[in-house]
Design a protein around this nucleic acid. Structure first.
Length: 627
RNA sequence: GGACUCGUUGCAUAGCUUGGAUAGUGCGAACGCUUGCGGAGCGUUAGGUCCCCGGUUCAAAUCCGGGCGAGCCCGCCA
């Protein structure tokens, strides 16, 4: 047990006391205390004030007195604060031992919320016609972090990446290749996804304005893409798979991996749509419109007439949102799986097996569906996702089976927009793939890595280049990932090229640096750290505060899972680092001339390092031993 | 026009779900700390009508209502 054990002990005792007073049904809180108010605080006296007709302070004093008679192993003393709070001071000798011992267990920080049920996390899902830009990265890092955190909470997680390989954006680059004469190889050795996005896509869509005949060509290509046997579809398949391979390289480089790639073209060709269409007709979830502006269409009824959403056009074709319905149902395992699965041609760096859908019935059968589904899509799609969510709720009885995890977009600062050639008059700017207004993820990574290499060389002139390379990689990835999740999902990130290169303050390098410091102490120490030490020697505020923070790990994981909030873990890593830096500054570990004190402190350093590594892993960040 | 999200110091943010003590942090600013286990660090100082008005409450940054400002969505496009 961790810090939670003292909280539970206090909760039990307070409940006992309230029982003796014949008071029930009081939902008081018992929480870690703010600094300066002991270790644990309860608001119980506030809640009793009315009923007992006494001031919170008097009640706190009364409870504090009664608490003396409770059996307690982890609470040393209680104190009624004049504000009315009831504060508790821990028996740190025992609590330190519990926390530090547990921190060495493999399962430290595990919580059982998922009960080993299966959950699907879908993220990334970028059109395979361009390179990933910094806005996509927010989606990918949120999705990857959430899936790591859910695993820690005992969910079996299936991570999916939906490949929209038959949409308009793909048609656009096919127009470029087939009708505007773009070379199928990037001319200057540029990465193929960058070439498709920066050159083919941008320049082709530019041409639509001057040449209206292209619109028709695109329409025909779009139609041909749906028929898998057409020459165009085969050509497009070749192109999109090359782009996809490049996109995956970017993701893998950021320590992101998947379980299965789902190709939209195959969903279309599998006939899944007509099955689900029949089903929702049967269930009366959609209606055929006889009159009005949507005459001849199948619609989902909205709250009022204006919010009706067309699912099937009057010409019989399905709309954009319609494609999401069979896919959502498939993710929840609500329909017979029309797919077979084969291994993707390249291996993921972490050796997790990556599967992809196929319609070839000679390949394996698998099950990638889940009891619950989390779909990570930016909140501009909230309206459409809400329709899918309520539709799925009618299919599946599990509450909240389908969750849209939305997040605000990444915009460009006016300075950065200006660098890219757009004067926004001091305002931030929305990125646009079509207009070529974006910052590619690969370039940000490269810039970060170069800067970090310089910094590392300054500090370690003797280090060989492959070590520097590895350190710079881990710090660059950490920096990028941390910046993408450290704030709330519903806050816009204004990306600025210059500021993004900052490595001070509330950043991944700050956290990673504390790991290097801890690693250095353990390395320099002649002894192996042990948990068989004298915990009574640990009395300094900085020591206890660090131990307390370590003991919060499982509570933080729980919080992150319940709120689907990777930020919670990012903050926790930062809190750990702050606590360690304070410890480092105030307390010496080595060469104390007191072997048992040294052992005790080494134990803290070791626990800190282990816990930090585990917490950072939940957000996909690796901390180097030297930097 | 309607829906959704955001508004906390010069800037960027935490706290809001679950009301309670002293609103925490980073950047920027000023000053200080290195013969010491690594200064990508630590400490000190200055800087706050928690957008406004009203309500609920013993108690509101937090909950509710109404404004204001910003963003975003609202197609038989994807």
């Amino acid at each position: 047990m961790t810090f939670k054990s003292i909280i539970e002990e206090i909760e039990n005792n307070l409940n006992k006391i309230l029982g003796e007073l014949s008071i029930s049904d009081v939902k008081f809180t018992v929480e870690p205390a703010k600094p300066g108010f002991g270790d644990v605080s309860s608001n119980v006296s506030f809640l009793l004030a009315k009923q007992l007709k006494k001031s919170p302070k008097d009640i706190a004093e009364m409870l504090s007195e009664k608490y003396q008679h409770c059996s307690s192993t982890l609470v040393l003393k209680t104190k009624a604060h004049q504000s009315g709070y009831l504060n508790f001071f821990a028996n740190w000798e025992k609590l330190s031992q519990m926390i530090l011992s547990e921190s060495h267990l493999h399962e430290f920080g595990d919580v059982d919320i998922g009960k080993n049920t299966t959950i699907v996390v879908e993220h990334t899902s970028v059109n395979p016609n361009k390179a990933l830009h910094i806005g996509h990265i927010r989606n990918i890092i949120i999705g990857d972090s959430i899936s790591r955190i859910l695993k820690k909470a005992n969910y079996k997680v299936n991570v999916l990446n939906y490949i929209d390989d038959s949409g308009l954006q793909v048609a656009d680059i096919i127009v470029g290749f087939k009708h505007l004469g773009f070379d199928q190889e990037s001319p200057d050795g540029k990465k193929f996804d960058h070439y498709c996005g920066d050159d083919v896509y941008v320049k082709t869509t530019e041409k639509y304005e001057s040449d209206s005949s292209l619109e028709n060509i695109r329409k025909n290509i779009l139609k041909e893409l749906e028929d898998g046997n057409s020459e165009t579809a085969k050509f497009a398949d070749k192109i999109t798979r090359r782009v996809l391979a490049n996109q995956l390289e970017t993701c893998w480089n950021l320590s992101v991996s998947y379980d299965c790639l789902n190709f939209e073209s195959q969903i279309i060709r599998s006939g899944l749509w007509s099955k689900i269409f029949d089903k929702i007709k049967e269930m009366n979830l959609i209606e055929f419109e006889d009159e009005g502006k949507n005459k001849g269409c199948w619609v989902i009824r909205g709250a009022d007439k204006d919010e009706d959403k067309v699912i099937v056009r009057s010409n019989g074709t399905a709309t954009y949102i319609a494609k999401d319905i069979p896919y959502a149902a498939w993710k929840l395992g609500l329909i017979d799986d029309p797919f077979h699965y084969q291994k993707y041609e390249k291996k993921q760096p972490n050796s997790r097996i990556l599967w992809q859908t196929t319609l070839d019935s000679n390949e394996s059968t698998k099950n990638f569906s889940g009891q619950k589904v989390i779909t990570v899509i930016d909140s501009r799609q909230a309206r459409l996702q809400k329709i899918i969510t309520s539709l799925m709720a009618k299919f599946k009885s599990v509450p909240d089976a389908y969750v849209h995890l939305g997040y605000e977009s990444v915009t460009l600062s006016s300075d950065t927009a200006k660098i890219l050639g757009l004067d926004t008059d001091g305002k931030q700017a929305q990125m646009s793939g079509r207009k070529g207004l974006y910052v590619n993820a690969d370039s940000v990574y490269d810039m970060l890595k170069e800067k970090i290499k310089d910094e590392t060389k300054k500090r370690h002139a003797e280090m060989d280049s492959s070590d520097i390379e590895e350190i710079a990689h881990n710090i660059a990835v950490g920096t990028l990932r941390y910046e993408m999740i450290k704030q709330d999902l519903d806050k816009i990130i204004t990306f600025d090229l210059t500021k993004s290169l900052s490595l001070d303050g509330d950043t991944a390098p700050y956290i990673q640096y504390t790991h290097a410091r801890a690693a250095r102490i353990l390395e320099k120490s002649k002894r192996a750290p042990s948990i068989n030490v004298d915990f009574s020697l640990l009395k300094e505020q900085a020591e206890l505060n660090l131990i307390k923070t370590i003991g919060m790990f499982d509570m933080q994981v729980r919080d992150a899972v319940n709120n689907l909030s990777p930020k919670v873990i990012a903050r926790y890593c930062h809190d750990l680092a702050v606590a360690f830096n304070s410890f480092y500054e105030h307390v010496k570990v080595l060469e104390l001339g007191d072997e048992s004190l040294e052992n005790s402190r080494l134990c803290i350093v070791d626990s800190f390092k282990i816990t930090l590594v585990k917490a950072l892993d939940l957000i996909g960040i690796v901390a180097p031993h030297r930097m």
